[in-house]
C-alpha cells in the first residue's frame, strides 16, 4: 500500500479513534486489555483499508471492523489479567445516589454493559450510536425482526441486572 494511502488512513483513524475506544471499553475491563484490543482493531482496519470503497461512511465501516474484531478475532492476553489496571469506577460507587453527572452515568452504563455477552454488547453499542434496527441487522448479519427481538431481550436483561 502506498505511503499516501497510509497517511490518509492514519488521519481518518486518528479522527475517529473514539469509536475504537468505545468498543474497547465495552469489551475489556482494564487498561492493558483496552490497549491490546485497540492495537488489534487498528491492525485489522489497516489490513482491510484497501477494500474500503467509501460506499458507507468511514465511521460506519470502522464500527463494523471494530466490533467484528472484538467479538470474533480478539483473544484476551493472560498477562494483562495480572498486571492490568482496572478502569476507575470508584466515582460510580461513591456517587451512585447522585446519579446526575455525565461521568457517573457513563460509569453506570459501562458497568451494565460489562455484564452482557459479546453479542448483547454489540447490540447495545449500535443502539446507543442511534443505528436503526436495519443497520444493526446488516452489521451483525441477522434479520431485522431478530435484531428487534434480541434488543428487547437485552433491555429486559439489563433491567433485571439492575433490579434483581
Amino acid at each position: 500500500m502506498t505511503a499516501e494511502l497510509e497517511k490518509r488512513f492514519i488521519k481518518e483513524l486518528e479522527e475517529n479513534q473514539n469509536i475504537i475506544h468505545k468498543v474497547c471499553k465495552a469489551y475489556t475491563t482494564n487498561r492493558d486489555d483496552h490497549n491490546d484490543l485497540f492495537q488489534e482493531i487498528s491492525i485489522q482496519l489497516w489490513k482491510a483499508y484497501d477494500k474500503f470503497r467509501g460506499d458507507s461512511k468511514f465511521s460506519t465501516w470502522m464500527y463494523r471492523v471494530a466490533l467484528n474484531t472484538a467479538i470474533s478475532l480478539y483473544r484476551k492476553s493472560k498477562r494483562s489479567i495480572k498486571t492490568g489496571e482496572l478502569y476507575d469506577n470508584s466515582k460510580e460507587l461513591i456517587y451512585e445516589e447522585y446519579d446526575d453527572t455525565t461521568e457517573v452515568q457513563l460509569a453506570t452504563l459501562y458497568k451494565m454493559i460489562h455484564q452482557l455477552n459479546d453479542i448483547e454488547k454489540a447490540l447495545v453499542l449500535l443502539y446507543l450510536e442511534d443505528k436503526s434496527y436495519r443497520e444493526i441487522a446488516l452489521c451483525l448479519g441477522i434479520s431485522e425482526v431478530n435484531a428487534r427481538v434480541k434488543m428487547n431481550r437485552t433491555k429486559t436483561k439489563l433491567k433485571k441486572l439492575v433490579n434483581p
Partner: peptide
Amino acid sequence: LSQMIHRKSSSI
C-alpha cells in the same frame, strides 16, 4: 498509530 498498524496481529 502509524507504528501500531505495522505491529504483528495476535488475532484468533
